[in-house]
Design a protein around this nucleic acid. Sequence first.
DNA 1: AATACTACCTGCGTGC
DNA 2: TGCACGCAGGTAGTAT
Length: 274
Amino acid sequence: MPELPEVETVKRGLETLVLGKTIESIEILWPRIIENDTSEFQTILHQQTIESISRRGKFLIFHLTNSDLISHLRMEGKYEFHAKTDEIKKHTHVIFQFSDQTQLRYLDVRKFGRMKVVEKGQALLQKNLASLGPEPTKEEFDLKVFTQQLKKKQKAIKPLLLDQKLVVGLGNIYVDEVLWQAKIHPLQLANTISKTKVIALHQAIIDTLNRAVQAGGTTIRSYVDATGHTGAFQQQLNVYAQTNQPCPRCGSIISKMKVAGRGTHYCPVCQKEV
DNA sequence: AATACTACCTGCGTGC
DNA sequence: TGCACGCAGGTAGTAT
């Protein structure tokens, strides 16, 4: 479920709940979630304290006493904070027992999420994190570099923005939103987008993700943050999940098509393929 | 090298 | 009521 704004919101919630907590033990109910050997994962993390939490793209990183714990929620992962005595809900796969009788639990209906413990300070060097593009901020996300990279790509813009190499953080909701904002058709080849629209797209990416973080993310079906709160950005969506609704800009009916295997919402009038 | 397809999972809504 | 099928905030591994 989560894209950058949701992961950032989860991170902020976790900071209010688990900073300073020491891991006493770990229960692993679905081992495939853990990329390490499970007993190694349990042994390494035993007695480590959560010192800080960061985010890179859609990855969460728990910085512990002697290790980094990388966590990706993929489609449906979520964290819940519980008392030890609380009932274990369905789809609970990993339970971190802290020294103070509280627990951090990882739940994931589709079991796509992954966790991996690595040496302290090494999280960003793992190959999946090392290959990520810049964060979508005006400081990190450079328009000139972005423009140059788009020029080299004979590929539809939507799947290009989804692959986290040119910029991180966009998923299926926000990619549809930023393409609508910049008036670009999802199938437009990257190397054919006009200079004006590249500038608009760059700005839309920074702006949309920022506003979505402010709103605490988007809840369409199941997303809640670590404190159990839904997001509010669904109220600001212009095209995603707006099939057959009027385009907020021109009043035309929003269409839905399939692009690179993903449901894709767009305005057939504002977003012409050129 | 770059692009496209598939696997990984469960649950829900739709149509027969 | 039951069952098949398509669909769902993502990525990584494999094939072309």
